[in-house]
Design a protein around this nucleic acid. Structure first.
Length: 280
DNA sequence: TCTCAGGGGCGAT
DNA sequence: ATCGCCCCTGAG
């Protein structure tokens, strides 16, 4: 395994906390599917050193660096946060949490599975799909499967997705994949002149993507850290802990949050929800 | 064995 | 604007 100095990141929360469904912790090692690779990570007890390797092609540091935002100074992000007792307590308690830079297409497809599913269930279903459509990579005698290519999902018979237990999400996934294949030119245009509002309205033009899923794709798949996905649970927390109006709507709440938490509101959300989830 | 909610969104009223 | 329903799984 390769090693690099790595700032103290709470890897447990970062990798298994629910922003990504790609990681498994097996014998103190983390294995995850990232683009065309299985990535293996290991952290020393002091969280100062990261050991890593990529498979089947080894030593792809660029993949690890970009995915884990190795060169980003998280302290600078913390400085943008408001003085807030919950946030501060959470950072003191958990240390640094990272928002992973996930593949855009994978994030979009994966979050179509999230409505009315819990995290273990989402992870299970995505792995079932990967088994059927993704490339197999064996690491440490364990079989892993990569996330399928978007055109594979576009062309796959719907039955294969249904066998993967994707249920009523299957048709959304397939039609989304078809739309993504068809929209290559539009996506290139969006990448040339990226804008959060253009991306948001593009995302919401997909069947199966509403406000919440759109925010998830914006922050986790596109790196718009100002976005703060609000599931029913998050809305409940905001109402209770920040005394927001009981009838406040999604978009009004989003505006309030953006104003209060600042440019990295979504990043702040990782700390906030983790804290409240574990100390309620 | 059975019911039911689980990190939403859609379509019909 | 509100309200069933979507498919499947595991918890109780």
């Amino acid at each position: 395994m390769n090693s690099i100095a790595f700032p103290k990141i709470n890897h447990e929360i970062t990798l298994l906390g629910g922003q990504s469904f790609a990681w498994d912790k097996i014998n103190e090692n983390y294995y995850g599917f990232v683009d065309d690779y299985i990535v293996k990570l290991q952290f020393d007890d002091n969280k100062e050193v990261l050991y890593w390797q990529t498979y089947p092609e080894n030593d792809r540091y660029d993949i690890v660096r970009d995915y884990l935002l190795i060169n980003l100074d998280i302290d600078n992000i913390h400085k943008t946060f408001p003085t807030d007792k919950y946030l501060q307590t959470s950072i003191d308690k958990f240390g640094k949490i990272l928002i992973l830079k996930q593949n855009f297409l994978e994030t979009l497809i994966s979050y179509l599975v999230t409505p009315t599913n819990n995290i273990p269930s989402i992870r299970y279903r995505i792995r079932e799909m990967n088994k059927r459509l993704g490339r197999k990579v064996v690491v440490d005698d364990i079989e892993f499967y990569l996330f399928p290519k978007i055109d594979q999902i576009a062309e796959v018979p719907i039955d294969i997705l249904l066998e993967s237990k994707l249920g009523f999400h299957a048709k959304f996934m397939k039609s989304a994949a078809q739309k993504l294949v068809k929209d290559v030119r539009d996506l290139e245009q969006l990448q040339k002149a990226p804008s959060i509002e253009l991306y948001r309205s593009y995302l919401k033009s997909f069947a199966g993507i509403g406000d919440k899923v759109a925010d998830c794709v914006l922050i986790y798949g596109l790196g718009y850290y100002s976005e703060f996905p609000l599931d029913v649970w998050g809305q409940r927390i905001m109402k209770k802990y920040y005394e927001l109006d009981e009838k406040m709507k999604y978009n009004d709440m989003r505006k309030w949050i953006r104003l209060y938490f600042g440019d990295y509101a979504g990043w702040a959300g990782q700390y906030l929800f983790e804290y409240i989830r574990t100390t309620k």
